[in-house]
């Protein structure tokens, strides 16, 4: 895999045999595929993916609540797999596809999990909701036959202080049924 960093900036030193070339610490241009679109942005190596999404990319749907992977509010998909965007650096995303809450619906058509969240009131204040939706949508995409325990396991890393877990489970099970039909 060609590193997106060096490919774009050309700032990288010529690779010597001993150690790999470096970029930064000043901001550098990187490319990233976000919600299906190629985006370029300036980041310092120390910028997390969550910060890059919310800052330079203007995708504030992704929330930062604990900033250490403990609450999963910042969940996005990396190549379709849910991860905490606060636990990964923007410079290391490379060619992997990033999907955020803004990229889940197809135009006006909500993802079945989004629609089910509304119908089952699986949200209150809504701050944990984007991350919660991303985890549940990934589960429904990957596993059509679901039990309540599967949903609980999938959201076991999420905190919701409003206490929406029961409705989140009900909504996700309903969305999985819709998807199968």
């Amino acid at each position: 895999m060609i590193n997106a960093v060096s490919a774009l900036t050309g700032r990288a030193e010529a690779p010597d045999s001993a150690a790999p070339p470096s970029v930064g610490p000043d901001p550098l241009a990187i490319a990233m595929t976000v919600n299906g679109a190629a985006r370029s942005l300036q980041v310092e190596p120390r910028m997390t993916l969550a910060e890059a999404l919310r800052g330079p990319l203007g995708l504030t749907g992704t929330k930062i609540a604990c900033n250490r992977g403990a609450c999963s509010a910042c969940t996005v998909w990396l190549d379709g797999v849910p991860i905490c965007s606060c636990t990964v650096l923007a410079v290391e995303i490379g060619t992997r596809r990033v999907t955020t809450i803004e990229g889940l619906a197809r135009g006006d058509a909500l993802h079945p999990v989004q629609a089910a969240f509304i119908a089952h009131d699986a949200l209150q204040c809504g701050f944990c909701t984007p991350g919660m939706v991303m985890s549940c949508a990934a589960l429904v995409e990957r596993q059509p036959d679901l039990t309540a325990d599967d949903v609980r396991a999938a959201i076991s890393g999420h905190y919701c202080r409003c206490g929406t877990y029961p409705h989140v489970v009900a909504a996700t099970l309903a969305a999985a049924r819709t998807r199968k039909e």
């Binding site: 790999p20 610490p25 190596p45």
Partner: peptide, 9 residues
């Protein structure tokens, strides 16, 4: 803190 970034191949 600020740091430089390298990718070992």
């Amino acid at each position: 803190n600020r740091f430089t970034w390298a990718t070992a191949r």
